[in-house]
């Protein structure tokens, strides 16, 4: 019961989500441990992406999406009346399934976030660019071409650029929505390595289709099925001695 002593940075409680009339999440309770990697696994359409998109309220952008229940972040409900969604998204960053750098230069991609939050000092922006790219293990590859288009980078580099962009506004949590789904194995390995490195200073929540990936990098794993969190626990326990039969069948590859 070691997990009891680790601090929860986020926590969902009784979370229901509807898209129009279709319910996508059913009473999900999940803690997110600080400075750990939490993996969310489960078959397509099970609600993994919906769940992490409630953590930074990106679901607000979907027409007809309705949420009930609470998501606590640092002790405050992110859905509470008057909660600052812009501040929330600054603190809870996101990396998407497909690399989506802006069609701008590499430098402008990184500067974008800090500028949004009011940083105008050129020297300060320069520092942020270097620091973020270093943390995303991209600095050495791009330091000589910061003023070229980000779209000229390879897919893996683009995804690390997106991670750097997420880091540029100094978040506490980084949500990754199948960050390696569109990458080749080598680029995938780099992102996984990076995620492991990032947990020293950040909390990472990653949705993945790839069970080996979840087993390799995560500390905690949540298995979702048909909009419910079927099982949650230490990755080792979920994979080696799952409590639910459904989980057992899924992680052993017998369905999904």
């Amino acid at each position: 019961m070691e997990m009891e002593f680790e601090e929860n940075i986020m926590e969902a409680d009784g979370l229901d989500v509807w898209y129009g009339k279709k319910q996508a999440l059913f009473g999900v309770d999940i803690p997110i441990k600080k400075n750990r990697i939490t993996a969310l696994i489960g078959p397509s359409g099970c609600g993994k992406s919906t769940l992490i998109r409630t953590f930074n309220r990106m679901n607000d952008l979907v027409d007809g999406c309705r949420t009930e229940g609470t998501v606590m972040f640092n002790g405050k409900d992110v859905f509470a009346k008057g909660a600052d969604v812009l501040e929330l998204r600054k603190k809870v960053g996101m990396v998407f399934q497909r690399p989506n750098p802006f069609p701008m230069t590499i430098r402008h991609n990184i500067e974008y976030g800090p500028k949004v939050h009011g940083v105008t000092d050129k020297a300060k922006l320069g520092e942020i660019v270097e620091e973020s790219l270093r943390k995303a293990a991209l600095w050495d590859e791009v330091k000589d071409r910061l003023d070229t288009s980000a779209l000229g980078l390879s897919g893996g580099q683009q995804q690390r650029l997106c991670i750097a962009r997420a880091l540029s506004v100094d978040p506490e949590v980084i949500l990754m929505d199948e960050p390696t789904a569109s990458l080749d194995p080598l680029a995938t390995a780099k992102i996984e390595e990076l995620a492991t490195e990032l947990k020293k200073s950040y909390t990472v929540v990653a949705v993945t289709h790839n069970m080996q990936q979840a087993a390799r990098i995560s500390d905690y794993t949540g298995f979702m099925y048909l909009g419910r969190l079927e099982e949650f626990g230490k990755t080792e326990d979920v994979f080696k001695s799952p409590k639910s039969e459904l989980t057992e069948r899924y992680v052993s590859g017998r369905f999904g």
């Binding site: 990106m58 952008l61 812009l86 998407f96 989506n100 802006f102 974008y112 949004v116 939050h117 506004v169």
Partner: peptide
């Protein structure tokens, strides 16, 4: 995805429209 990337950084919708 451009819009999502920008809004996930905490930009408002208008800021996103204007700058991205």
């Amino acid at each position: 995805s451009y819009r999502e990337a920008s809004m996930a950084l905490g930009a408002t919708k208008w800021h996103t429209t204007r700058n991205v």
